[in-house]
């Protein structure tokens, strides 16, 4: 029977997505429905709950912490778009060049941060970002005449500090995505273009970028989702995410505190759902904008 379906172009795709869909329904849809249910309740523990209708949602839009978190996440997300797409892309293109020697070592090193325990990374970055003039980053800034900055103390510098650690952690991974995309581009195309007199920049602009578009869309989507789900870095850099004046308060940190410190499961679910909704809308806008649904390369 299965064999028959497998030969049917109409039915086969359903069989192909069946296992994924099954696990997805059980382990994702289930818990999500449950949290939607919770978001209409004011919970006391898991047992006692009081139905409050849309109150949690109404409260959310008057919650200055929530609004602050949305702003912080947006800043961070924009920041990752500026750093975490161009940098890895340039690295990947340069590493793809046949003139590049020792690729494996470079890749290994760029890749190591993503595997380094974040506890350790946070400890090192706290030293690097030490607010005194002797701090490593501040000393480097001093060389080019910029006065010492209070990195982990000034609320305005909190997001840039997180961006720094995020760039360090994620560049290698994004580079892998781009490298993967690049292996699909044949060398002959470049050579042909080179013979036609196209210089490096022109080749990059007219061949590499368009062919990498699906991967760029993917990485941008990841940045968008990751940008709004930012949690671990903030959590580690400041004691359990307690950044001065909430300079690095993110939605996920706020949600986490609401659920696990303040024990407001219903409200936490509301934060989570609204946060998901924000990301979803932005993603759809972005995908629509980049022509994702047209099924073309």
């Amino acid at each position: 029977m299965i064999r028959k379906i497998l030969n049917d172009k109409k039915k086969a795709p359903w069989l192909f997505i069946a296992p994924f869909l099954l696990l997805f329904t059980v382990f994702k849809v289930g818990p999500i429905l449950y949290s939607i249910f919770l978001s209409f309740y004011k919970m006391k523990g898991l047992n006692g709950g009081e139905f409050v209708g849309l109150n949690n949602y109404v409260d959310l839009f008057h919650d200055s912490n929530f609004i602050k978190a949305v702003v912080n996440n947006t800043k961070y997300m924009i920041g990752t778009m500026i750093t975490l797409i161009p940098l890895p892309l340039i690295f990947a293109v340069l590493l793809d060049s046949k003139h590049c020697k020792g690729k494996t070592i470079y890749k290994a090193i760029l890749f190591i941060p993503s595997l380094t325990s974040l506890v350790i990374a946070a400890a090192v970055f706290k030293i690097l970002l030490y607010e005194g003039e002797t701090g490593i980053v501040n000393s480097l800034l001093g060389l080019i005449g910029i006065p010492a900055q209070k990195w982990l103390i000034s609320p305005g510098l909190a997001i840039p500090a997180v961006l720094l650690i995020a760039t360090w952690r994620w560049t290698g991974i994004n580079m892998i995505y781009f490298t993967t995309g690049l292996t699909g581009i044949s060398k002959e195309m470049y050579e042909a273009a080179a013979i036609d007199g196209a210089n490096m920049l022109q080749r990059f602009y007219h061949i590499t970028l368009p062919l990498l578009k699906p991967v760029i869309i993917f990485v941008a989507t990841l940045n968008l989702i990751g940008g709004y789900q930012l949690f671990t870095e903030v959590y580690m850099l400041w004691n359990a995410g307690a950044s001065p004046d909430n300079g690095a308060l993110t939605l996920a940190v706020y949600l986490y505190k609401t659920a696990f410190s303040y024990f407001k499961l219903g409200y936490a679910s509301t934060i989570g759902l609204v946060m998901g909704l924000i990301i979803l809308i932005l993603t759809l806008v972005q995908l629509k904008f980049t022509g994702f649904f047209k099924d073309e390369v």
Binding site: K10, A12, I17, P31, S35, L46, A252, G272, G276
Partner: peptide, 29 residues
């Protein structure tokens, strides 16, 4: 590589689930 009914909708629903933070799913899981 295939066309089937509700393809885009199912895909969007799946990707949309990724938008929700893991923290609200942990207790039911």
């Amino acid at each position: 590589k295939y066309d089937f009914k509700y393809k885009n909708i199912i895909f969007i629903v799946i990707v949309a689930a990724q938008m929700l933070p893991i923290h609200i799913q942990i207790i039911p899981l």
